[in-house]
């Protein structure tokens, strides 16, 4: 007798627990407004990343094609993965002095772990994280970028 009662209560409990779960899913079935799924890539246009999002390292340039990098190489020393190579050249300034300026700031996106040390330690705040996140390419060499634009110069007033 007891076993029959137990059997019936067990069945009852089991069905009840299933119905409880179904209630939750049923609720969302009739409330489509609460669905949070985003339709990527269809929503590419509206998709805005947060301002601090770490997509890649970039070097901001102003309207006159000027950047703030002095070519000191501190970011290169601080990068744990060796993803930055700073190439600087000696040039002669107008008053005849020799000065080191940035030639190429090479950045290997494929080796970067987005730790932020280069940006934090740069003495002249020349680097910044960009929000671009769609980095998939077919050849690895495309992930090696030169951050300073061609023909760009050092911003006035940056030492």
């Amino acid at each position: 007798m007891n076993s029959i009662v137990k059997y019936i209560t067990d069945v009852y409990r089991a069905v009840k627990s299933l119905v409880t779960g179904m209630k939750v899913t049923g609720y969302y079935f009739v409330h489509p407004g609460e669905i949070v799924t985003q339709q990527y890539p269809e929503n590419r246009k509206e998709l805005v990343m947060f301002e601090r999002f770490r997509g890649e390292v970039i070097m901001p340039h102003d309207d006159n094609n000027q950047h703030k990098c002095t070519g000191c190489g501190i970011c290169q020393i601080n990068c744990p993965n060796g993803s930055i190579e700073v190439k600087s050249i000696q040039v002669e300034t107008e008053d005849g002095k020799k000065k080191r300026v940035l030639d190429q700031h090479i950045y290997h996106l494929s080796m970067c772990t987005f730790c932020g040390l280069c940006i934090k330690t740069c003495p002249s705040n020349a680097l910044k994280f960009g929000n671009e996140f769609e980095h998939a390419v077919f050849t690895k060499s495309k992930l090696t970028k030169v951050l300073n634009r061609p023909g760009s110069t050092l911003m006035k007033g940056v030492q």
Binding site: M49, F50, R52, F53, R54, T113, F114, C115, G116, K120
Partner: peptide
């Protein structure tokens, strides 16, 4: 993850600490 992303910049691997404090202030 959205909260993380807004403050630390990353969703999963935050690297938000540095010896002595944090990389940047909270958003």
């Amino acid at each position: 993850l959205d909260i993380f992303e807004e403050t630390t910049g990353s969703r999963l691997l935050q690297s938000y600490n540095c010896p002595g404090g944090l990389m940047n202030d909270i958003h």
